[in-house]
Structures are given as C-alpha cells and as structure tokens.
Simulated scan of single mutants.
Amino acid sequence: MMWRVVQSEWMKMRKSSIWFPVVLTPLLAIAIGFMAASHGPLLHRMNANPWNSYYFIVVAAYSLLMLPLLTGVLCSLMCRFEHLSGGWKQILSFPIPRSTIYIVKFFYVLVFVALAQVLMMFGVVATGVSVLHISTAAPWSMLFRSILGGWLACIPLIALQLWVSTWWKSFGAPFAVNVILTIPAVAVAHSSRFGPVYPWAQPMLAMMPSGHHFLYVTTKTASTIIISGMVLVAVGWTHFSRRDITS
C-alpha cells in the first residue's frame, strides 16, 4: 500500500515545479558565496584555510535563510495538488490510511532537502577547485558532517511546516509565516540561550563547522532537535489523521 502511494506522489512531482527550488537554492547560495569570496579582503583572509573560509561564507547565507525557506516551499508544493479542486477529498476517498499519505509526503520532503544538501556540497567543491583554484584537498569529512547535520536539523522545521501546509489551503500563507519566522533567526542564532531551541536557527548551528562534536551540534541543540522533531511529527500526524477534510 505504501509503495503505491510513493509511486503516486512521484507521478505528481516528477514533472512539477518542485525541482526548481531544490536546484536553485544551493546554486544561489554558491553564487553569493563565490561573489563574496572573490572580494579582495575576503580572498586574502582565505589564504590561511581556503576551504573552511569559503564554506563558511556559503553556509552563512544558505543555512540561515535559504534552507529554512526551502523547507517551507517544499512542504507547500507537496500539498498544492491536494488543495486544488477538492484534491484532499479525492485522495482520502481511497482505502488508504491517512497516516500513510502523511508519512510519504514527509519522506519526499526529506529526500528533496537531502538532494539540495548534496548539490550544495558538490557545488562548493566544484567552484572551489575550478573557479577559485583552491589547490588543497577538499575536506570531505567536514563537508559530509556539516551537510548531514543540517539535514537532520531540518526535521523539526519540516514537521511543523508540513503540518501547516496540510491545514491551510493557501500556498502563500505558510510561506509568509515561514519568512516572518526566518528573519529573527539572524539574531537568535547568535544567542547561546535561544539559538539551540529556535527551529529556524538550528540548521545554521548544525552546519557551521565548530567544536569536536561528530555533527557540529551541542548536546543541547541535538536534544532539542530530537525532542521537538518527534513532538511536531506526532502532532502533525495526529491532526491530519483526525481532522475533517472539507476540500
């Protein structure tokens, strides 16, 4: 049953516009990072540790602004078909458990975010070698740990925004809320008290290479991600499974 739902969702998405933000987001972050790294003073400071310096520049914009916004766009697009012309009534009229539909949509958003993360990682390496001419070996271990940590840190955000996207019919309303809550992350991320518990700041904290933790996240941040992720998934799942669908 679940495999059929996976195939059905894939048929809807393979020719949809959902691929556009997945590809555009890492490309835009890399372009911003490259332009900043090409600036004279920044390029001079990169000489000591070029890969770390370049990656910090790219990740600063990507993880703090673009990645949280990407999760909101993907969640909205995953539910866009069902919000049009009574799609929810149609899909829920089939003998398919609601929990299966919710899990498959959540799974696909995770996959698309993972794809964006991988594109960002290889894009950084490609531009670093071919454009910035960084001659030292790429720090694959650091990059993989950062990319994986950022992906895991998106789980609470995805859970929250998928819940909202299945609830609200409008595509613009969840995105507007996401933008409004993303902006304070610029300031909150630098707070040792509030940063680790603010979902929109967690991807940045997880992706910035620092300390000796395996995934560059502190125990407080990791425990918050795990607990909040489980709670938000359970709440969204329960609400979707029990609420009345009117359109």
Score class of each variant (00 low, 15 high):
V5W: 01
V5N: 06
Q7C: 13
S8M: 15
S8Y: 02
M13H: 10
W19D: 08
V23S: 07
L27S: 07
I30Q: 00
M35A: 06
G40D: 15
L43S: 12
N49H: 10
W51N: 09
N52E: 02
N52M: 09
V58D: 02
S63G: 14
L67Q: 01
L74Y: 06
M78K: 00
S85T: 12
S85G: 13
I91N: 06
P95S: 11
P95C: 04
Y102I: 10
F107D: 06
V109C: 15
V118I: 14
M121F: 15
V125A: 13
G128W: 01
V129G: 06
P139R: 03
P139F: 04
I147W: 09
L148Q: 04
G149T: 03
C154A: 03
I155S: 03
I155F: 11
L160P: 04
Q161S: 08
V164A: 03
W168S: 10
S170H: 01
F171S: 14
P174W: 07
I180Y: 10
I183E: 06
S191H: 06
R193M: 06
R193E: 15
G195K: 03
P196T: 01
P203T: 09
M204G: 00
M204C: 04
P209E: 14
P209S: 14
S210I: 07
G211C: 08
G211Q: 03
H212N: 06
F214Y: 13
L215F: 04
T219E: 15
K220Y: 02
K220V: 14
A222E: 02
T224D: 01
G229T: 12
V233T: 14
T238G: 05
F240H: 06
S247A: 10
